[in-house]
């Protein structure tokens, strides 16, 4: 038995060590097992599950963020290329329309010139025809006048 006493008394005193000691030790060991199953394990499970959940979510969010950034950069380059493409198309179209305009203008000019020339030629021919007819009529008239004068005599 663990009974001894610093103060010489057979019983009592502040330093009375007896079987309370091993029994208290057993009680604390039992308490450790009880608290482990009642407190440390269940609470630990919940806390660690939540910590895992949170860290997983953070990792996922980070992944998504990097993906978004990548997509954003991708979109930006696409936008840039689309813009240059559009610019190229616009300038091409401008060139084309310019060319078409010039061609059409030239064609129209040529046509106008041609029809003007034709009209001039026609006018000329009609003028000469009219003049011929006039001189022929003048001839007829003069012949008629001459004939009349001759007959009356």
């Amino acid at each position: 038995m663990l009974a001894f006493n610093f103060f010489g008394a057979t019983e009592g005193g502040l330093f009375d060590i007896n079987a309370t000691l091993p029994l208290m030790a057993l009680q604390v060991v039992a308490l450790t097992y009880i608290l482990n199953s009642l407190f440390f394990k269940p609470v630990g499970n919940v806390v660690e599950k939540r910590e895992k959940f949170v860290s997983n979510n953070i990792i996922e969010a980070k992944n998504k963020l990097s993906e978004v950034k990548k997509l954003e950069a991708d979109l930006l380059t696409q936008l840039q290329s689309a813009r240059t493409e559009a610019q190229r198309i616009v300038s091409e179209a401008e060139d084309e329309s310019d060319k078409l305009y010039k061609e059409a203008l030239e064609l129209a000019n040529n046509e106008a010139n041609a029809s003007k020339e034709k009209a001039r030629l026609e006018i000329e021919s009609q003028t000469s025809a009219a003049r011929d007819q006039l001189s022929k009529q003048a001839d007829d008239l003069s012949e008629l006048i001459v004939n009349r004068l001759i007959l009356e005599k």
Binding site: F15, I17, N18, T20, L21, P22, M24, A25, V28, V29
Partner: peptide, 10 residues
């Protein structure tokens, strides 16, 4: 003292 010695020995 019994309690504290028990704890310390553990």
């Amino acid at each position: 003292i019994n309690t504290t010695i028990a704890l310390a020995l553990l």
